[in-house]
Amino acid sequence: MTYQFDFAALLPYWHEFLQGALLTLQLSAIATVLGFILGTLCAIGRADGPRWVRFLVATYVEVIRNTPLLVQVFIVYFGIATLGFHVGADMAAVIALVVNVGAYTSEIVRAGLESVHKSQLEAADCLGLSRTQIYWHVVLRPAIERVYPALTSQYVLLMLASSITSQISAEELTAVANRIQSDTFRSFETYIVVGVIYLALSFIVRIGLWLFGLVVFVRRRKLGTAL
C-alpha cells in the first residue's frame, strides 16, 4: 500500500464544502417541516377521516414505504418534466423528500394517535372541552410528544437520505463532493471529509431537534417526565 494521503489538496475547497453542508441542512429543514405537516394531516385523515380518505392515505403510505427514494426522486424529476412542467433539480429534490418523509411521519404519528387512551377523551368531554380543543390538547399534542423521539430519528435519516438527491444533481453536499473529487482526483480523501461532515451534521440535527423538543413540550420540561 503506497498511497499517499493528501488532504491539503482539499483545503482550497473548504468554502464549497461549507456551502454544500448548508444546502443539505436547508433541504432537510424544508423537507422536515413540510413533511411533518403532510404526515400529520395524513395520520389524522387515516385515523378519523371518511373511508375513501383512509384508503387513499393507506395506499400513499404503502407505496412510498415500499419503493426506494432513488426511484421516487427519478419519477418526480423526470416525470414532472414529461408532464410539461419545468422544475429545477433542487425543487424536484424537495418535492421527492417531502412526499417520502410525509409517509414515514404519518405512520409514526398514527402510532401516537392510537396510543391516546379512550378514558382521556371521555375525561376531556366531561370537562366540557370543545371538539377542537379535545383534538388539539388531548389527542394531537400528547400524541406527537410521545412519538417525538421516533420522529427525531426519522428526520436524521432524512438528512442522510438527502444525499440521494445528488443523483439528479441537486447541489447539496454529496453533489459538491462528486464535483470536487473530479476536480482534484482526491476521491478517497474527499469522501472521508464529506463522511465526517455528515457525521457532524447528524449530531447537530439530533441535538437541534432535542433542544426544539425541550422548548415545545413544556410539560415534559417542567415535570421532568414523559406523559
Binding site: 445528488s166 463532493a177 478517497f188 464529506v194 463522511g195 455528515y198 447528524s202
Partner: peptide
C-alpha cells in the same frame, strides 16, 4: 454511530475508491 451517522451513498463511494487504493 459512524455507520448510522453517514449516508450509505458516501459509504459506497469510500469503498469503491478505497478498494483501488488498497491495490
Amino acid at each position: 454511530q459512524v455507520v448510522q451517522g453517514t449516508p450509505l451513498l458516501i459509504l459506497l463511494f469510500l469503498i469503491y475508491f478505497g478498494i483501488a487504493i488498497v491495490g
